[in-house]
């Protein structure tokens, strides 16, 4: 009797269809990204037809509805920078310690609880965090530092540090856990204590993952909008200390997009801010993935 090995024709057809469908789904996401970027460029670059490039990038005053409008983004960039740096300074040391504790010191059952809880923090909508910050953190900052308002870059930093924690802790913990057991045993067998093993072997071995976690944390912070808008006071002035109201790039776009007349200089300047933000975030993610790739 003859045995047939070839599959029926409709099998081959399904194979073909599935393959193409998956390919299509993959390519669509790339097309969307490209289209979004092109749209951003198209709407944003128009600005420089009417408004000098240097005034935009180096101007220190942002008052889009004055006559003539002044669209210098230096205060906004500094605002974002102040809030981000403050958040990083708080979140990174805390995150590193938490990650080390979870990965190396906590007993098995506690590990899962802690990691789950930290990751749960990421599930809280930023507007909720912002609201909680507004009613708890802002008055606290005001009272502690005896300043006229608690709506400051510092308050924003604290809030954002919270938001960056899940990313930082979770990724760092993964990279610490990925350090081969052999390194651990090697160090312990040489008489290293647990702490010596952690800081002499594990942290250096996990360093690229740790740096990547920090970069992604920064990316998360710099792109955050709602919470900062609620907490940082939204005053587009050049900040001199962290205890002053600032306005970030993201908050500017969110706050002014509604009132800007479509097609106006103001409108396209907001898109131009979007381009700057896009480029910054892109560079941060690029650095992060370079760190991740460096890991063997």
């Amino acid at each position: 009797m003859e045995v047939k090995f070839s599959r029926p024709a409709h099998h081959r057809w399904i194979e073909f269809a599935v393959e193409k469908a998956i390919f299509g789904a993959g390519i669509i996401s790339i097309i969307f990204v490209a289209l979004i970027f092109l749209f951003l460029l198209k709407e944003g670059l128009v600005l420089f037809r009417h408004y000098p490039f240097t005034n935009f990038f180096f101007g220190i005053q942002w008052s889009p509805i004055s006559e003539p409008p002044r669209l210098g983004i230096v205060p906004l960039i500094l605002g974002s920078l102040a809030v981000t740096l403050g958040a990083v300074v708080m979140a990174v040391p805390l995150g590193v310690c938490a990650a080390i504790y979870i990965a190396e010191i906590a007993p098995g059952w506690l590990k899962d609880i802690l990691k789950g809880t930290v990751e749960f923090l990421a599930a809280i909508p930023s507007i909720v965090l912002g609201f909680i910050g507004l009613v708890t953190l802002v008055p606290m900052v005001k009272n502690i530092f005896h300043i006229p308002t608690g709506l400051t870059a510092f308050s924003g930093s604290i809030m954002l540090a919270f938001m960056a924690m899940p990313t930082i802790v979770s990724m760092m913990e993964d990279s610490l856990r990925a350090v081969p057991r052999a390194y651990r045993e090697g160090a312990l067998a040489l008489g290293a204590t647990r702490w010596q093993t952690i800081y002499r072997v594990l942290i250096p071995a996990a360093s690229s993952g740790i740096l990547a976690a920090v970069m992604l944390g920064i990316g998360r912070v710099i792109g955050e909008t709602m919470a900062v808008m609620m907490i940082t006071g939204n005053s587009a002035r050049l900040p001199t200390t962290l205890l002053e109201p600032v306005r970030t790039m993201t908050a500017t776009i969110a706050a002014e997009m509604g009132e800007a007349v479509q097609g106006s200089t103001h409108y396209s300047s907001l898109f131009a801010i979007g381009i700057v933000l896009f480029i910054i975030t892109f560079l941060i993610n690029l650095t992060a993935s370079a760190f991740i790739k460096r890991r063997k």
């Binding site: 390194y183 045993e185 090697g186 160090a187 067998a189 040489l190 008489g191 002499r200 072997v201 250096p204």
Partner: peptide
């Protein structure tokens, strides 16, 4: 105790450091 009784493992496990730093790690 471990300073006096050292251990070599199945798979070589030098630390991701230089040769020099590996030798003087202990």
């Amino acid at each position: 105790h471990r300073k006096k009784v050292g251990m070599v493992f199945q798979r070589p496990n030098p630390f991701p450091l230089t040769v020099y730093e590996n030798v003087i790690f202990g």
